[in-house]
Amino acid sequence: MIRFIYADDLDDNPILRDSMLRDRAVQFRHRLGWDVAVDREGRERDQYDACNPLYVIATDETERCHLGSMRLLPTTGPTMVNDHFSDLLGGGSVESPFIWECTRFCLSPQADSTVAALLMLAGGKFLRAFDLESLVGVFDLSMLRVYRALGASPEVLGKSNEIGVGLWHFTDDAQARLARRARVDVAQLDACFERDL
């Protein structure tokens, strides 16, 4: 199901953590060819993982195996979009306690077609629960196809040849579409959220 878990708490579940970081290495370095650092254990980590971000992780029933994830941080502190992709915003920054950054949206090779929808549904739940305005995300442009197929395309603020910066705010329609695609009872997701946050 879904876990909402901060980095320091995830350290108590190193099997799940490493499973996520290895899947990230596979996706970002090996499949998409991003210039990201991968350690000897095959785990991908960057400076924002050290900021105690909130991970949203789809897991198998054992809660030890990563199926998909994303990483959230408020844009009032250091963020990838402001530190590295300001030029894609036309030379500026996005900063607000009501706008959180979503990065490292990752799907495990084991993930079936429901996982991406479930993650985005969880993102929408998070926004609503805390009266937030939007998620701003840095993503590989090839992912746009995935987002579109899910019926949850971002509004693209800017892009280079490979990387896009976009906004998600998830309308009621988008949430309903995602719930169908994720084949999940929304009450179940709400229960995960209540348990974790």
């Binding site: 009032t76 996005v94 900063e95 607000s96 706008i99 305005e133 939007s134």
Partner: peptide, 17 residues
């Protein structure tokens, strides 16, 4: 030529700054 949602994000970010 942007959505009202995107406009809201620009306004909110400007407000905070």
């Amino acid at each position: 030529s942007i959505s009202e949602h995107t406009l809201r994000v620009y306004i909110e970010s400007a407000r905070f700054k």
